[in-house]
Amino acid sequence: MTQDFSPAELNQLFENLESRLAYQEHWLDTLDQAVVQQEKRLAKLEQLSALMRERLREQHQAFQAGDHQGESRPEDEVPPHY
C-alpha cells in the first residue's frame, strides 16, 4: 500500500527527518563527550587506587619488618578519660 504525497508533504517529511537527525547527532556528540570525561576520570581513579595500594603495601611491609618498634601507635594509646 503506497501513499501519494504532494511535494509540500514530502518536503515537510524530509525537514522533519533532517531535524530528528540533527537532534540525534547532537545527543551522540554530547554522550561521546561524557564518555571521554568518564574515561579520564576512571583513569585518574585507577592511578590513585594503584598509588594507595602501593603505599598500603609499603606500610604493611614496614610493620611486618619491625620498623614500628619504639613508635607509639594511636590504637595503643589510652584515651585521656581513662
Results as ranks from 00 to 15, higher is better:
Glu15Ser: 04
Leu31Thr: 06
Met1His: 04
His26Asp: 15
Ala62Val: 02
Arg55Tyr: 12
Leu48Lys: 14
Gln24Asp: 01
Gly70Phe: 06
Leu45Ser: 04
Leu13Ser: 02
Glu39Thr: 08
Asp4Asn: 08
Trp27Cys: 10
Leu31Gly: 00
Ala34Asn: 09
Pro79His: 09
Lys44Val: 11
Ser72Leu: 12
Gly70Ser: 02
Asn11Pro: 02
Thr2Asp: 12
His81Met: 06
Asp67Trp: 00
Lys40Leu: 06
Gln69Asp: 05
Glu15Pro: 00
Glu46Leu: 04
Ala50Cys: 00
Ser19Tyr: 02
Ser19Met: 02
His68Leu: 03
Gln59Gly: 14
His60Ser: 11
Asp67Cys: 05
Asp67Val: 00
Asp4Thr: 09
Leu51Gly: 05
Glu54Val: 01
Val36Arg: 10
Asn11Val: 00
Glu58Val: 12
Leu56Thr: 14
Leu31Met: 09
Ala34Lys: 12
Glu77His: 04
Leu48His: 11
Asp32His: 10
Glu46Asp: 09
Phe63Thr: 14
Leu56Lys: 13
Leu17Glu: 13
Arg41Tyr: 07
Gln24Thr: 05
Leu48Pro: 00
Leu21Glu: 01
Gln3Asn: 08
Val78Gln: 14
Ser6Phe: 03
Arg73Val: 10
Glu9Pro: 04
Arg53Asn: 13
Leu45Trp: 07
Glu71Tyr: 08
Glu77Ser: 09
Leu10His: 04
Glu25Arg: 15
Asp29Ser: 13
Tyr82Thr: 03
Glu15Arg: 12
Tyr23His: 08
Pro7Ile: 02
Gln69Gly: 06
Leu48Ser: 14
Met52Arg: 12
Gln61Gly: 02
Thr30Gln: 12
Ser6Trp: 02
Val35Ile: 15
Pro7Leu: 02
Gln12Val: 05
Gln3Thr: 05
Leu51Met: 08
Phe14Val: 06
Leu56Trp: 06
Pro74Trp: 09
Arg55Lys: 15
Gln33Arg: 13
Phe5Leu: 15
Ala62Phe: 01
Gly70Met: 05
Asn16Glu: 13
Glu25Ser: 11
